[in-house]
């Protein structure tokens, strides 16, 4: 009889060690099976419910998992920044697994300190502000909601620009070079805390709340002042 079967405790120990020493890709595979397989199919081949992950690479997995876009709570919903189900080691494992499924791009490494802030503002207003608003406070498109970018990290911004998640267009290196992307990331970082030299920012969302302040605070104060100054004549 083989030695392993004759010594069940030894066999158990070997199995445990093997399990703990599993490569991240193997751990990722089991996590994938538990959380992703039902929609994305075995080996990420894709189903009618979700796209194939064959060549999306570490870049996409890193983006969708760290933002909490995936797992989607409900089919057909727009993926949104939400709860992150996994801890750091699990994310690493899943990213490694998805990367191993094909030949996709790696996680980008943006360098905003090399970018130029004013070039970043120009690029952002050309390519991004139509949907995300000039101070990156988010906006609306028919059928989707471009989110505000306050919580986006530098890596996530770079990933989203290249991936084009949900209905966002994707920008290849030919459309936006890496150096231009550095400038855009630098601008978005700045837009998280813009320098509101003029006064009350009211959320940086633009003329509508400013108009509301004028009507409901300034105009009300002026009317109140008239009430104080004036005097009602007695009925004759």
């Amino acid at each position: 009889m083989p030695a392993v079967v004759r010594a069940p405790r030894l066999a158990l120990l070997v199995l445990l060690v093997a399990g703990v020493a599993a490569t991240p890709a193997q751990q990722g595979k089991s996590l994938f099976g538990a959380h992703c397989l039902s929609c994305h199919g075995g080996n990420g081949a894709g189903t009618s419910r979700a796209p194939s992950l064959r060549n999306v690479g570490a870049r996409a997995a890193d983006f969708y998992l760290r933002t909490g876009y995936m797992p989607l709570p409900h089919l057909g919903l727009q993926p949104r920044r939400s709860r992150v189900l996994f801890d750091e080691s699990q994310i690493r494992a899943l990213v490694a697994y998805v990367a191993s499924l094909g030949n996709g791009p790696a996680v980008p490494k943006p360098h905003p300190e090399r970018g130029n802030l004013s070039a970043g503002q120009h690029l952002f207003s050309t390519h991004c502000a139509g949907c995300h608003q000039i101070a990156a406070q988010g906006g609306v498109v028919t059928g989707a909601i471009p989110p505000p970018l306050e919580d986006a990290t530098d890596v996530q911004i770079a990933e989203a620009v290249r991936i084009g998640p949900y209905v966002m267009p994707s920008f290849s290196k030919k459309a936006i070079s890496d150096r231009e992307l550095d400038s855009i990331v630098r601008y978005v970082d700045w837009a998280k805390h813009p320098d509101n030299r003029g006064g009350w920012a009211i959320g940086d969302i633009g003329p509508v709340p400013e108009g509301l302040v004028t009507w409901f605070i300034a105009a009300a104060a002026l009317v109140g002042l008239c009430v104080v100054i004036g005097k009602r004549l007695p009925h004759g």
Binding site: R49, C131, V141, T142, A144, G164, V167, P169
Partner: peptide, 20 residues
């Protein structure tokens, strides 16, 4: 200045040019 470019057609709205 807005473009809807779906990544996964069956679940997502069709491509569209949108005016802001």
């Amino acid at each position: 200045s807005m473009y809807r470019a779906p990544l996964f057609q069956p679940d997502e709205p069709r491509p569209a040019l949108v005016c802001p």
